[in-house]
């Protein structure tokens, strides 16, 4: 629990036509090799936001090593459901699968629990778009908008003030980015400190579409939302 409150913030907002997820990266620096995030793969730099299944994106806060193990478990659980039922796993069921395992580690002696909280942004035909949160004890709950990690209290009260029940993805993206910029330590948002993902349904195929943004796409988004670095800053750096 302690580790999670210091971890990078992960924030999720449920909209009418999609779910938006954003996360603050902690491991940064210009020596970090980010070549895999720029091209190749499905986007993201693999620190906070992961594709769990074609219909679910996960955001993690806490011990990174534990998170990797949980992500692998979630992916396997989703594939096990696919093999048994020939359908994408319902979002709540995937959250339950992870919580069943997390709970087990609180009950049996000799082992420590997973030090990870997760946000699940997903879609299934039963309840459409959904956002869940699970904590190390194995509790989970559904949310319209929520936040885990450092400063989650501040973020939640901001979300509570600004959230509207009929919010659409376009506005949810703005809400998420504005809230992120207020809760993060740094003054300006950049792709160096941010991971970002949106889950929607493809209007043609009617299949869920998980999009994890690449660094360049995040910067472009920040510019269009008017949250990018001011021009003076770049000029000063150049000088």
């Amino acid at each position: 629990m302690e580790a999670i409150s210091h971890a990078g913030t992960v924030l999720g907002v449920l909209a009418k036509d999609g779910v938006v997820l954003a996360a603050e990266k902690k491991v940064t620096g210009k020596l970090l090799d980010l070549s895999s995030a720029k091209d190749g793969g499905y986007g993201g730099s693999g620190e906070k936001i992961y594709l769990l299944n074609s219909n679910v994106i996960g955001g993690v806060a806490g011990l990174t090593a534990d998170a990797n193990s949980l992500v692998n478990y979630a992916r396997t659980a989703a594939q096990r459901h696919l093999i048994m039922y020939n359908e994408d796993i319902p979002v709540e069921l995937l959250a339950q699968r992870l919580c069943d395992m997390k709970q087990g580690y609180t009950q049996f002696g000799g082992l420590r629990p997973f030090g990870v909280s997760l946000l699940y942004a997903g879609y299934d035909p039963h309840y459409h778009f959904q956002l869940y949160h699970s904590d190390p004890s194995g509790n989970y709950s559904g949310w319209k908008a929520t936040c885990i990690g450092a400063n989650n209290g501040t973020a939640q009260s901001l979300l509570k003030q600004e959230y509207k029940d009929d919010i659409v993805v376009k506005d949810a993206i703005g809400l998420v980015l504005r809230t992120m910029s207020k809760t993060m330590d740094s003054t300006t948002l950049t792709s160096e400190k941010l991971e970002f993902a949106v889950l929607t349904v493809d209007p043609v195929t009617k299949q869920p579409k998980a999009k994890i943004y690449r660094p360049a796409e995040i910067d472009a988004l920040l510019v269009s939302e008017g949250l990018a670095k001011k021009d003076e800053d770049t000029e000063m750096k150049a000088a």
């Binding site: 359908e87 069921l93 035909p125 039963h126």
Partner: peptide
């Protein structure tokens, strides 16, 4: 799960 399996899922 409070909802029933869909026919395709039950069949599988």
């Amino acid at each position: 799960n409070l909802y029933a399996l869909r026919p395709s899922a039950a069949a599988s």
